[in-house]
Design a protein around this nucleic acid. Structure first.
Lengths: 121, 121
DNA sequence: GATTCATTTCAAATCTTGTTGTATTGTCGA
DNA sequence: TCGACAATACAACAAGATTTGAAATGAATC
């Protein structure tokens, strides 16, 4: 992933409401949730939710499918995994010895065995 | 890591300049860089850099040390690793089967062997 | 086709962020 | 102490984000 691509993802996650929203959709994967249910669960007005849904959707972190008069939203977990990979490589590339002094894959997460990241072994 | 703690980190990373800044400091770990050098490398005015340094410093993603009349900044790699762990667990907790259909640690990153995440094996 | 319901769109108000130039603070060397 | 330099602080402005309620859109039910 390119840095230019990562910035809008961080923007999308840089609001408490949107982070809760994404986590909620991860929790409800793979079925997802319709907008009305999300609004109820987050306790915010529908129009405000719509604003945040549009923001995070535009970033690509969620997907939407029409179901009659409902709109069903789902977390784009693959993209999140790409983002995590980006962060991981940006943390270690060129500086394996600086990965927290760990030799077990930048210590990410605990229990990771050696050989996880090419630059970190 | 708590969600409340993660939000300011995403805020800190949600600007192209600050993401470049953090990556620059990772690249120059563990020596870090002084403010003037960062400003030159990023090609932005000192006062603007100071604004972004304050933002990302307040989030905790970098540290600062006084060296005479210089201020030396370093990336807080441990915190980044915590953030990555948070993202990883938030992506998978309770829904191992949704981790991109992978059984090799949410496919993060390529080469990860099984047993990485408790919820993903 | 009229009504109901889910959702978005819109406009307005407010708040926050980002940028720039200038001024200030603090440190070093002569 | 003085001048030069590193860096931040401040003020002002521009630009963008967030929130809300009301109105509009579109689909299901009767």
């Amino acid at each position: 992933m390119e840095t230019k691509r990562a910035v809008p993802l961080f923007e999308a996650l840089s609001s408490g409401i949107r982070l809760d929203l994404f986590r909620l959709l991860v929790k409800h994967a793979p079925d997802g949730l319709v907008a009305g249910d999300i609004a109820k669960l987050l306790g915010i007005p529908a129009s405000n939710l719509s604003f945040h849904l549009k923001t995070i959707l535009h970033a690509g972190l969620i997907t939407v499918d029409k179901e009659g008069k409902f709109l069903r939203y789902r977390a784009n977990i693959s993209l999140m995994i790409e983002l995590i990979s980006y962060l991981t490589s940006e943390c270690c590339t060129g500086n394996p010895e600086q990965c927290g002094g760990r030799r077990d894959g930048c210590g990410l997460p605990s229990g990771i065995s050696s050989g996880i990241l090419p630059d970190c072994t």
